[in-house]
Amino acid sequence: MKNQIKALLLVITFIFCHYGMKYFWGKSWIPILSELDQHTDLLLFPAKYLFIYGPFLLIATVLFKSIRWYELLGLNIKDSQRYLLAALACCTPMVIGYAFLSSELNISISGVVTGSIYAGFFEEVIFRAALFGILFRFCRWGFIPAALISSIIFGLGHIYQGHDVISALMAVTITTIAGTWFAWLYCECGYRIWFPLWMHILMNAAYGIFSMSGGAAGDLKGNLFKATAIILSIVYINVLIKGGKKREVTLSSLFKNQPNSSSLSIKTPTYGLNDA
Protein backbone atom coordinates (compact mmCIF):
# COMPACT_ATOMS: atom_id res chain seq x y z
CA MET A 1 0.00 0.00 0.00
CA LYS A 2 1.39 3.41 -0.96
CA ASN A 3 2.40 5.81 1.77
CA GLN A 4 -0.13 8.48 0.80
CA ILE A 5 -3.01 5.99 0.99
CA LYS A 6 -1.75 4.89 4.39
CA ALA A 7 -1.54 8.54 5.45
CA LEU A 8 -5.13 9.17 4.32
CA LEU A 9 -6.41 6.12 6.21
CA LEU A 10 -4.43 7.19 9.27
CA VAL A 11 -5.83 10.74 9.27
CA ILE A 12 -9.41 9.57 8.63
CA THR A 13 -9.16 7.03 11.46
CA PHE A 14 -7.72 9.63 13.81
CA ILE A 15 -10.44 12.18 13.05
CA PHE A 16 -13.12 9.51 13.50
CA CYS A 17 -11.64 8.46 16.85
CA HIS A 18 -11.08 12.00 18.08
CA TYR A 19 -14.55 13.26 17.21
CA GLY A 20 -16.65 10.10 16.87
CA MET A 21 -15.55 7.54 19.44
CA LYS A 22 -16.57 9.87 22.26
CA TYR A 23 -20.20 9.21 21.36
CA PHE A 24 -19.69 5.45 21.72
CA TRP A 25 -18.09 5.86 25.14
CA GLY A 26 -21.43 6.27 26.84
CA LYS A 27 -22.16 7.59 30.30
CA SER A 28 -22.75 4.17 31.82
CA TRP A 29 -18.99 3.56 32.18
CA ILE A 30 -18.42 6.69 34.25
CA PRO A 31 -20.14 5.65 37.52
CA ILE A 32 -18.67 2.13 37.28
CA LEU A 33 -15.08 3.30 36.85
CA SER A 34 -15.54 6.18 39.29
CA GLU A 35 -16.70 3.73 41.93
CA LEU A 36 -13.72 1.48 41.31
CA ASP A 37 -11.16 4.29 41.64
CA GLN A 38 -13.06 6.02 44.47
CA HIS A 39 -13.87 9.04 42.29
CA THR A 40 -10.20 9.94 41.71
CA ASP A 41 -10.46 9.37 37.92
CA LEU A 42 -7.27 7.29 38.07
CA LEU A 43 -9.02 4.50 36.15
CA LEU A 44 -11.54 6.61 34.27
CA PHE A 45 -9.01 8.77 32.40
CA PRO A 46 -6.76 6.05 30.92
CA ALA A 47 -9.81 3.89 30.12
CA LYS A 48 -11.36 6.78 28.19
CA TYR A 49 -8.12 7.61 26.34
CA LEU A 50 -7.63 3.98 25.31
CA PHE A 51 -11.27 3.54 24.30
CA ILE A 52 -11.30 6.67 22.14
CA TYR A 53 -7.87 6.33 20.53
CA GLY A 54 -7.38 2.56 20.72
CA PRO A 55 -8.73 1.95 17.17
CA PHE A 56 -6.35 4.60 15.80
CA LEU A 57 -3.33 3.03 17.51
CA LEU A 58 -4.38 -0.41 16.30
CA ILE A 59 -4.79 0.76 12.69
CA ALA A 60 -1.42 2.54 12.86
CA THR A 61 0.39 -0.61 14.03
CA VAL A 62 -1.35 -2.70 11.35
CA LEU A 63 -0.56 -0.26 8.52
CA PHE A 64 3.09 -0.12 9.59
CA LYS A 65 3.46 -3.66 10.94
CA SER A 66 7.06 -3.90 9.71
CA ILE A 67 8.05 -1.31 12.31
CA ARG A 68 8.40 -2.26 15.95
CA TRP A 69 5.48 -0.84 17.90
CA TYR A 70 7.66 0.98 20.45
CA GLU A 71 9.59 2.66 17.64
CA LEU A 72 6.34 3.62 15.93
CA LEU A 73 5.06 5.22 19.15
CA GLY A 74 8.37 6.86 20.08
CA LEU A 75 8.67 4.72 23.22
CA ASN A 76 12.21 3.43 22.81
CA ILE A 77 13.44 3.76 26.40
CA LYS A 78 16.99 4.75 25.44
CA ASP A 79 18.02 7.88 27.38
CA SER A 80 14.57 8.39 28.88
CA GLN A 81 16.15 9.27 32.24
CA ARG A 82 18.48 11.78 30.59
CA TYR A 83 15.48 13.44 28.97
CA LEU A 84 13.82 13.66 32.39
CA LEU A 85 16.86 15.44 33.85
CA ALA A 86 16.97 17.81 30.87
CA ALA A 87 13.26 18.59 31.25
CA LEU A 88 13.68 19.22 34.98
CA ALA A 89 16.51 21.66 34.24
CA CYS A 90 14.46 23.45 31.57
CA CYS A 91 11.36 23.73 33.77
CA THR A 92 13.03 24.74 37.05
CA PRO A 93 13.00 28.53 36.38
CA MET A 94 9.31 28.30 35.44
CA VAL A 95 8.50 26.39 38.63
CA ILE A 96 10.36 28.95 40.74
CA GLY A 97 8.55 31.77 38.99
CA TYR A 98 5.15 30.14 39.49
CA ALA A 99 5.95 29.59 43.16
CA PHE A 100 6.73 33.31 43.45
CA LEU A 101 3.50 34.33 41.70
CA SER A 102 1.22 31.82 43.39
CA SER A 103 -0.93 32.63 46.39
CA GLU A 104 -2.19 29.07 46.88
CA LEU A 105 -1.12 25.48 46.34
CA ASN A 106 -3.22 22.68 44.91
CA ILE A 107 -1.35 19.56 45.99
CA SER A 108 -3.44 16.61 44.91
CA ILE A 109 -1.82 13.33 43.87
CA SER A 110 -4.83 12.28 41.81
CA GLY A 111 -4.97 15.75 40.24
CA VAL A 112 -1.30 15.60 39.21
CA VAL A 113 -1.68 12.09 37.82
CA THR A 114 -4.85 12.79 35.80
CA GLY A 115 -4.13 16.38 34.77
CA SER A 116 -0.40 16.10 34.15
CA ILE A 117 0.95 12.56 33.87
CA TYR A 118 -1.97 11.04 31.97
CA ALA A 119 -2.45 14.11 29.80
CA GLY A 120 1.26 14.41 28.99
CA PHE A 121 1.75 10.72 28.27
CA PHE A 122 -1.32 10.03 26.16
CA GLU A 123 -1.30 13.33 24.25
CA GLU A 124 2.38 13.11 23.35
CA VAL A 125 2.26 9.44 22.33
CA ILE A 126 -0.99 9.81 20.36
CA PHE A 127 -0.70 13.29 18.82
CA ARG A 128 3.06 13.62 18.44
CA ALA A 129 4.58 10.14 18.04
CA ALA A 130 1.69 8.24 16.44
CA LEU A 131 -0.04 10.87 14.30
CA PHE A 132 2.62 13.47 13.54
CA GLY A 133 5.54 11.04 13.74
CA ILE A 134 4.11 8.51 11.29
CA LEU A 135 3.04 11.20 8.81
CA PHE A 136 6.46 12.86 8.92
CA ARG A 137 8.78 9.86 9.23
CA PHE A 138 7.11 7.12 7.24
CA CYS A 139 4.51 8.79 5.00
CA ARG A 140 7.05 11.44 3.95
CA TRP A 141 4.88 14.45 4.70
CA GLY A 142 6.73 17.69 5.31
CA PHE A 143 7.17 18.91 8.87
CA ILE A 144 4.72 21.80 8.44
CA PRO A 145 1.71 19.86 7.09
CA ALA A 146 2.30 16.93 9.46
CA ALA A 147 2.71 19.21 12.47
CA LEU A 148 -0.24 21.42 11.55
CA ILE A 149 -2.77 18.62 11.18
CA SER A 150 -1.84 17.12 14.56
CA SER A 151 -1.36 20.45 16.33
CA ILE A 152 -4.60 22.04 15.11
CA ILE A 153 -6.63 19.04 16.26
CA PHE A 154 -4.68 19.15 19.53
CA GLY A 155 -5.39 22.87 19.84
CA LEU A 156 -9.11 22.50 19.14
CA GLY A 157 -9.24 20.06 22.04
CA HIS A 158 -8.45 22.98 24.35
CA ILE A 159 -11.15 25.34 23.09
CA TYR A 160 -13.14 24.70 26.29
CA GLN A 161 -10.51 26.65 28.24
CA GLY A 162 -11.77 29.91 26.76
CA HIS A 163 -14.66 31.74 28.45
CA ASP A 164 -15.48 33.81 25.34
CA VAL A 165 -14.69 33.80 21.62
CA ILE A 166 -11.41 35.72 21.94
CA SER A 167 -10.03 33.66 24.81
CA ALA A 168 -11.14 30.43 23.09
CA LEU A 169 -9.28 31.44 19.92
CA MET A 170 -6.22 32.33 21.97
CA ALA A 171 -6.33 28.96 23.74
CA VAL A 172 -6.55 27.13 20.40
CA THR A 173 -3.77 29.22 18.83
CA ILE A 174 -1.37 28.82 21.75
CA THR A 175 -1.93 25.08 22.10
CA THR A 176 -1.53 24.66 18.33
CA ILE A 177 1.84 26.42 18.54
CA ALA A 178 2.73 24.32 21.58
CA GLY A 179 1.87 21.15 19.67
CA THR A 180 4.19 22.19 16.83
CA TRP A 181 6.97 22.90 19.34
CA PHE A 182 6.49 19.48 20.95
CA ALA A 183 6.61 17.90 17.48
CA TRP A 184 9.94 19.61 16.79
CA LEU A 185 11.36 18.41 20.12
CA TYR A 186 10.25 14.88 19.26
CA CYS A 187 12.06 14.98 15.91
CA GLU A 188 15.27 16.42 17.30
CA CYS A 189 15.41 13.88 20.13
CA GLY A 190 15.92 10.93 17.80
CA TYR A 191 12.18 10.34 17.33
CA ARG A 192 11.80 9.39 20.96
CA ILE A 193 8.91 10.98 22.79
CA TRP A 194 10.50 11.29 26.24
CA PHE A 195 11.76 14.87 26.21
CA PRO A 196 8.53 16.52 24.98
CA LEU A 197 6.58 14.10 27.20
CA TRP A 198 8.48 15.12 30.34
CA MET A 199 8.27 18.79 29.38
CA HIS A 200 4.50 18.45 28.90
CA ILE A 201 4.03 16.67 32.23
CA LEU A 202 6.21 19.04 34.25
CA MET A 203 4.70 22.20 32.75
CA ASN A 204 1.16 20.92 33.33
CA ALA A 205 2.03 19.90 36.88
CA ALA A 206 3.57 23.29 37.72
CA TYR A 207 0.56 25.07 36.26
CA GLY A 208 -1.88 22.98 38.28
CA ILE A 209 0.00 22.80 41.57
CA PHE A 210 0.52 26.54 41.74
CA SER A 211 -3.05 27.24 40.60
CA MET A 212 -2.04 29.52 37.74
CA SER A 213 -4.97 31.23 36.02
CA GLY A 214 -5.80 31.88 32.39
CA GLY A 215 -6.04 28.33 31.03
CA ALA A 216 -3.85 27.44 28.07
CA ALA A 217 -3.50 31.10 27.08
CA GLY A 218 -2.21 32.01 30.55
CA ASP A 219 -1.51 35.53 31.73
CA LEU A 220 1.41 37.85 31.02
CA LYS A 221 3.52 37.11 34.11
CA GLY A 222 2.84 33.38 33.95
CA ASN A 223 3.67 33.30 30.25
CA LEU A 224 7.00 35.01 30.84
CA PHE A 225 8.09 32.19 33.12
CA LYS A 226 6.59 29.59 30.77
CA ALA A 227 8.74 31.12 28.01
CA THR A 228 11.89 30.31 30.01
CA ALA A 229 11.10 26.58 29.75
CA ILE A 230 10.53 26.85 26.01
CA ILE A 231 13.70 28.87 25.42
CA LEU A 232 15.81 26.49 27.53
CA SER A 233 14.45 23.49 25.64
CA ILE A 234 15.51 25.12 22.35
CA VAL A 235 18.93 25.85 23.82
CA TYR A 236 19.21 22.22 24.93
CA ILE A 237 18.48 20.92 21.43
CA ASN A 238 20.97 23.35 19.88
CA VAL A 239 23.66 22.26 22.34
CA LEU A 240 23.08 18.67 21.24
CA ILE A 241 23.32 19.69 17.58
CA LYS A 242 26.57 21.54 18.20
CA GLY A 243 27.80 18.42 19.96
CA GLY A 244 27.34 16.35 16.81
CA LYS A 245 23.67 15.40 16.64
CA LYS A 246 22.28 15.68 13.14
CA ARG A 247 19.50 18.23 12.68
CA GLU A 248 16.31 16.40 11.70
CA VAL A 249 14.02 19.29 10.72
CA THR A 250 15.62 21.32 7.93
CA LEU A 251 14.43 23.67 5.21
CA SER A 252 14.31 20.77 2.77
CA SER A 253 11.96 18.77 5.01
CA LEU A 254 9.50 21.56 5.85
CA PHE A 255 7.02 20.73 3.08
CA LYS A 256 8.18 17.30 1.91
CA ASN A 257 10.30 14.74 3.67
CA GLN A 258 12.63 13.33 1.06
CA PRO A 259 12.95 9.52 0.70
CA ASN A 260 16.62 9.55 1.65
CA SER A 261 16.02 11.68 4.76
CA SER A 262 17.34 10.25 8.02
CA SER A 263 13.90 10.80 9.48
CA LEU A 264 12.70 7.70 7.61
CA SER A 265 15.08 5.41 9.42
CA ILE A 266 13.52 3.22 12.10
CA LYS A 267 16.81 2.57 13.77
CA THR A 268 17.62 4.46 16.91
CA PRO A 269 20.51 6.82 16.13
CA THR A 270 23.47 7.18 18.43
CA TYR A 271 25.46 10.35 18.79
CA GLY A 272 27.95 9.49 21.48
CA LEU A 273 28.15 11.31 24.78
CA ASN A 274 26.11 14.27 23.59
CA ASP A 275 23.22 12.15 22.32
CA ALA A 276 19.81 13.63 23.03
Rank of each mutant, 00 (worst) to 15 (best):
C91A: 13
A217N: 09
G133T: 10
Y83T: 12
K78C: 04
L42E: 04
Y186P: 01
I12H: 02
N3C: 03
T176P: 04
V125H: 07
S102D: 02
N274G: 15
S116W: 04
R82D: 14
L232H: 06
T250K: 15
V112H: 01
F132K: 05
S110Y: 08
T250H: 05
G74F: 02
K78L: 11
S110C: 03
E248L: 15
T176W: 09
G214R: 10
W181V: 11
F132M: 14
T40P: 14
A171I: 01
M170Y: 12
F182E: 00
L85D: 03
L148W: 00
I231S: 08
S150G: 09
C139H: 07
F51L: 00
Y191T: 07
Y53A: 06
R137A: 14
C17R: 01
S34P: 01
Y19T: 15
G97Q: 07
T180H: 06
P145K: 01
G133V: 10
D275Q: 08
A130R: 10
T270N: 11
P145G: 02
Y236L: 13
S211C: 13
N257I: 05
T268L: 09
T40S: 15
T40K: 14
S116E: 05
P196Q: 01
F195M: 08
F56G: 05
G208L: 09
N260I: 11
S34K: 10
F45D: 11
G133Y: 11
L185F: 07
G54S: 08
E123C: 00
L58T: 02
I234V: 14
A276G: 11
F121G: 02
P55Q: 02
V172W: 07
F210A: 03
P196M: 07
I174S: 09
L57V: 07
F56T: 12
S102A: 15
A178T: 13
A7T: 04
E248A: 15
M170T: 09
A146V: 00
I5Q: 15
F24W: 05
M21P: 02
L273P: 14
I201T: 01
L105P: 04
E71K: 15
M170L: 15
V235H: 12
W194M: 09
F210I: 00
K2I: 05
C189F: 08
M21N: 00
N274P: 09
G155H: 06
I241C: 11
L57E: 03
